[in-house]
Write a protein that binds this DNA or RNA. Structure first.
Lengths: 333, 333
DNA sequence: GAGAAATATGTTAGCGCTGTCATAATGACT
DNA sequence: AGTCATTATGACAGCGCTAACATATTTCTC
């Protein structure tokens, strides 16, 4: 679409130097005399020259692009990861090229293929589930790959996140130590969200070790949301009014649960304790701060980028970076 | 970073055709005999060929990229716009290349420059405020430009959004018609968020026309958030306990205000009415659905892409697309 | 069955940049 | 003055693809 845009050649002519010299000035690479640099820079300024990255990529077989695959933009946690990615990228000249998979592995495969077409410096994905074709493409391309959020499996290259299984387990231990015994679980569709399921499994393990078991369990057949949390807790309480703590698949669901209690006149914590996951702002701004597990999504994105940029080659050793989590006592459990 | 990746030439050799024929198959362009197509396709499959977009861009001077500039990822409305953009892009083969400006015009300028370097098919930005240099780059490049969210000014090419001034005005009329007279305004930093200011101005106009005026006004000196809304309403009520309706700069702030009322034991609507802006899910899942104005962010992103893709050239007539808004009566005002 | 029209394929010449290797100019140290 | 490094610049080829223009080949038309 660009038209008559000035090229390196134009700048070189105006500055009275060769093209490669201009290229060196632009990329800050190789030795350049101060006088020459100044001359070139002013020529660039005069012409309004903007380098053509496509040409650059082609010539150097490698782009200043980083592919980012997110499962969804509806769930606030992924924009937060993206924010971390962007913040680490900001100072580097790299640009994120994003794709959204909608939790679908075939879609992911298609997007990986189109991202690879840009010869990105690295690709950031979510989770460990990929099609064989995706794995093959990634292997052939040799680009660096980070798999985010989760560390409960074997990564392709590096993994950055936290153990959701352990987080679920610790949440269970925490609640047991606080005296809760009659557990209910309020979840959402976990075919897509493998991590919610891992937390659930961790929770069940903790309960089993204490000789307990989930007394009630209700899962909403769709993505998590405040409304789903509200309605799903309502459904569970209708069937099992005797539980003393509801563990939610995440904070969105838990905030909905809190609203349900408000409406139904159930005393939160005294009558029914609520526990979430993520540590979202909204949960902490409730009249009673939500008891939850705080994960650091921003940090996950940021660290992933930093690690990926450390080296262009995949290291021989796969790397797993645990960004940890923190039990937030809150006031609801 | 890619290495020994097969090229068009390899595919062409294996399929026993010329390069251009492979190129045509890949791009689905020009007439190709079915037999040839099949042969080429299976060669592509066999080699695991992935086209190099940088080369394609360079040769055709135009990429399958769409530049997207967002002011922030922290405010949920922008990921929603991005979702709309992505949804419209999904079927087209275009990929969004994103940049985040942090509401800073100089940052925006830098990002526009790096996006332009990829020769994107179009650029999507937010708002009408840009530096002169940004405008110049955009003008020189001749790429299509959409300015989103707002339609209260003159666009570069097309604008998609709603009149925030009118929305503020209508919200004011609505509240006045419901009998509210003692207005308070709870806002956030609007140097960055020009649209919040426009709504505020619209509100003031409505009040003035009715012979009314804001009795109280409190602005938080930072970005909007639930916590800011809670604390800022608290501050306002401490100074002006007599107002009967609080208009918030957006739903995040208003939800915080609701939480404040809960904590302080203020009867929402009877004693103090609350009114937001955006129509976020969280507001509608409150025990009392929030009274607000619903804008359609997803639609804004989607329509912008559709309009931009209609033609590669800027039309002679600037276009303004009003995606409208809707007063949501709710239960808090 | 000659010519027009449509369909299918190929040839050539770059797109704008950077890697590689060469060359020139300067200083540093014998 | 001569060797060696160091710094500064340039020539040239080519990255992988596609636009533009041929050139076959087939199908239709009267």
């Amino acid at each position: 679409m660009l038209q008559d845009m000035p090229t390196l050649t134009d700048v070189a002519k105006l500055a009275g130097v060769s093209e490669i010299t201009v290229s060196r000035v632009v990329r800050n690479k190789g030795p350049i005399a101060d006088a020459t640099r100044t001359r070139v820079l002013s020529a660039i300024e005069k012409l309004g020259y903007v380098p053509n990255r496509a040409a650059g990529s082609l010539a150097s077989s490698g782009s200043q692009l980083m592919g980012v695959l997110l499962p969804s933009l509806s769930n606030i946690v992924f924009p937060e990861v993206l924010r971390g990615i962007h913040s680490a990228l900001a100072s580097t000249g790299y640009q994120p090229l994003i794709g959204v998979t909608d939790y679908d592995l075939k879609t992911e495969q298609g997007i990986v293929s189109s991202l690879l077409a840009w010869q990105p410096a690295a690709i950031i994905m979510t989770g460990f589930d990929h099609t064989d074709a995706t794995r093959r493409m990634l292997a052939n391309s040799r680009v660096r790959v980070a798999e985010l959020m989760d560390i409960d499996a074997d990564p392709i290259d590096i993994a950055v996140g936290l153990s959701h299984r352990r987080a679920g387990f610790d949440a269970g231990r925490h609640l047991i130590s606080r005296g809760y015994r009659r557990f209910g679980y309020v979840g959402h569709d976990w075919d897509a969200d493998r991590r919610a399921r891992l937390r659930y499994e961790g929770l069940c393990t903790a309960l089993a070790e204490a000789g307990l078991t989930l007394e009630a369990e209700q899962r909403f057949a769709g993505p998590s949301s405040t409304i789903a949390g509200r309605d799903t807790l309502a459904a569970m309480m209708a069937k099992n009014p005797t539980i003393d703590v509801a563990v939610f698949s995440n904070d969105d669901m838990a905030v909905g649960g809190f609203f349900y209690c408000l409406t139904a006149g159930i005393a939160v914590k005294e009558k029914l304790a609520l526990f979430g996951f993520n540590g979202l702002d909204i949960g902490q701004s409730l009249p009673m701060p939500l008891s939850t597990v705080r994960s650091n999504r921003f940090l996950i994105g940021k660290i992933a980028v930093e690690k990926l940029l450390e080296s262009g080659e995949r290291p021989t050793e796969k790397q797993i970076i645990d960004t940890g989590y923190e039990i937030v006592a809150g006031a609801t459990a």
